[in-house]
Amino acid sequence: MNIGLTGGIATGKSTVSSMLVRKGALLVDADVIAREVMLPGHPVLAEVAAHFGQDILQTDGQLDRKKLGEIVFNDPKERLALNGITHPAIRREIRRQMEAYEKSNPEQLVVVDIPLLYESELQSLFHKVMVVYVPRKTQLQRLMERDRLTEEQAKARLDSQMDIEQKKRMADYVIDNSGSMAETERQLDELWPRITRP
Results as ranks from 00 to 15, higher is better:
7 G>S: 05
32 V>K: 08
95 R>G: 03
179 G>E: 10
30 A>I: 02
165 E>L: 10
74 N>M: 10
70 E>T: 07
155 K>D: 06
166 Q>K: 14
77 K>S: 15
23 K>L: 13
123 Q>K: 11
43 P>L: 12
167 K>L: 08
91 R>G: 08
49 A>Q: 06
39 L>G: 09
67 K>G: 08
161 Q>A: 09
78 E>W: 06
114 I>Y: 02
115 P>G: 13
198 P>G: 15
52 F>I: 09
72 V>R: 02
62 Q>A: 11
140 L>Y: 08
22 R>A: 10
60 D>S: 15
172 D>N: 11
68 L>T: 03
76 P>L: 14
138 T>N: 12
127 H>S: 11
55 D>C: 15
56 I>P: 00
99 E>K: 13
196 T>G: 08
63 L>P: 04
143 L>D: 00
190 E>C: 10
155 K>A: 14
14 S>C: 14
155 K>W: 07
122 L>R: 00
171 A>M: 06
60 D>H: 11
135 P>F: 04
166 Q>I: 13
83 N>G: 06
124 S>G: 09
63 L>H: 04
169 R>W: 12
35 R>K: 13
84 G>T: 10
121 E>L: 11
117 L>R: 01
185 E>P: 05
7 G>R: 02
191 L>T: 07
110 V>F: 02
90 I>P: 00
113 D>K: 00
157 R>Y: 07
177 N>P: 07
104 S>P: 06
6 T>V: 08
12 G>K: 01
177 N>R: 07
150 T>M: 14
41 G>A: 14
161 Q>E: 11
128 K>Q: 11
191 L>A: 12
54 Q>H: 12
120 S>T: 12
143 L>I: 07
88 P>I: 05
47 E>F: 09
81 A>T: 11
20 L>C: 03
121 E>K: 10
141 Q>P: 03
159 D>L: 15
27 L>F: 04
83 N>L: 09
52 F>L: 11
9 I>N: 03
198 P>Q: 12
